[in-house]
Design a protein around this nucleic acid. Structure first.
Lengths: 233, 233
DNA sequence: CGGTACGTTGAGTCATATCAACCATAGTGG
DNA sequence: CCACTATGGTTGATATGACTCAACGTACCG
């Protein structure tokens, strides 16, 4: 995790095309560029933790971040992932509350830290920005609601199938058709909300039924409609 | 469900003191008063349904509303409740998407319908309003995240205890100490995400252990710390 | 070379869902 | 007024999904 002084321009950054920043004035972008701090994070590093007071928020330039909450007995519950173009930590900045999630890098990432005041100022002075940020929050809220319904009503098998579909949709596949995001069995279990052993058994069941191919952490979906059928979607 | 022409003033309404509307200019309040439509809803009536395009949002003046999603097999999953002072339906207005929840009145309610354009205009022209609305959304998002962790990791017994605590905190008790919100066993099961029979069995277990007193739908909490201990909070 | 983290498999247990029967209550229509 | 029906509540018996525990394999890393 070190400061990268060579990347002071946002020209090539997602910030230019992201719906959230697209409508910014040149001068507002300048303000961000001058005040942001870009850092590289290795797999396993924690960006911020539950309970932290946030001094700013982050744009994900590259890499993948997992965002989780720690349950009563210390088990982590993965809420969502962030990928290039996503922003993280803004919830705490806006509501001025301590972070309610921990964010951990699962694939080497470059993040731009932007001070809280800039975000708050933009919300106040640029109504387009405010509306876009609100849309983003509302979208996340809608997704969270669906997730609640899923976890409460579906079986572990259905949820695992659904998660595989989602991961495929969100992160895509490489040239061999393998899911680009690679997770441990434990991480999968922390999304689905079940035991690691259950994930292992279900993955090999899906494999034996011809829905997927497994090679360690590499998962290849062979029959997406089949999985969707299992997942009830 | 009929228009109530006698309540054209917001003077006595929560709108005056609600954090969201507190900072409005007199002229902005006037705008709302002139354009709102106040209606009374009986228990069981649906305010809006999943998939509806929202032409506005609602302020809850009195009554209690349940907000739920319908799962794959038609089982409803209650996401949250709205009580006087809360606003509902704004998510769809902001993100300009169809509603992802259904809202049903469970205790006779008076609702003020306010056109979407007014909300969107306020967000654009009044930065205080924008910030407050965003705080509200972020708060809901934080709560949704915690709910996900709970449902995924806690047992049914723990969740039921937790829900009872929440209902007590949110809606309070009458003079006899009975929870003000009264729900069917099925509704309780649709919050917890379990079968009705399980709720019945657990409620009587809590009763026999001296944590609660039951009288039909009237539930009285006798030992709140005890319930909190069960709920792991 | 041992250590640590991850993955796998089997066996046993328990929480919870499901199914079925039954009771209580209130509203409805003839 | 009574039979009728619908809705909600309760209880018991049974089935099973999923967790836990325990042992062991595998791979990478200093």
């Amino acid at each position: 995790m070190h400061n990268n002084p060579f990347d002071l321009s946002c020209d090539s950054c997602t910030i230019r095309t992201h719906p959230l920043f697209r409508h910014l004035e040149e001068q507002e972008l300048q303000e961000i560029m001058l005040n942001k701090i870009t850092e590289t994070y290795k797999r396993g590093s924690i960006v911020y933790q539950e309970g932290n007071r946030m001094k700013g928020f982050c744009c994900v330039q590259s890499g993948i971040i997992k965002i989780y909450q720690t349950g009563f007995d210390g088990k982590e519950q993965i809420i969502r992932f962030a990928k290039p173009g996503d922003i993280i930590g803004y919830r705490s900045v806006v509501s001025n509350e301590p972070a309610c999630t921990t964010t951990e890098v699962i694939e080497e990432a470059i993040l731009c830290h932007i001070p809280a005041e800039i975000l708050l100022n933009l919300v106040k002075t640029n109504s387009n920005f405010a509306v876009e940020l609100m849309k983003l929050t509302c979208k996340e809220l809608g997704e969270a609601n669906s997730y609640i319904t899923d976890i409460a009503q579906k079986t572990v098998k259905e949820r695992l199938a659904e998660i595989l579909i989602h991961l495929d949709d969100e992160f895509g596949e490489d040239l061999q058709g393998v899911l680009k995001i690679s997770l441990t069995r434990e991480e999968l279990s922390n999304i689905v909300g079940t035991a690691t052993e259950s994930i292992i058994r279900l993955l090999s069941e899906f494999k034996s039924l011809g829905y997927i191919e497994i090679n360690g952490r590499k998962i290849k979906i062979l029959d997406k409609p089949g999985l969707k059928y299992i997942a009830n979607i």
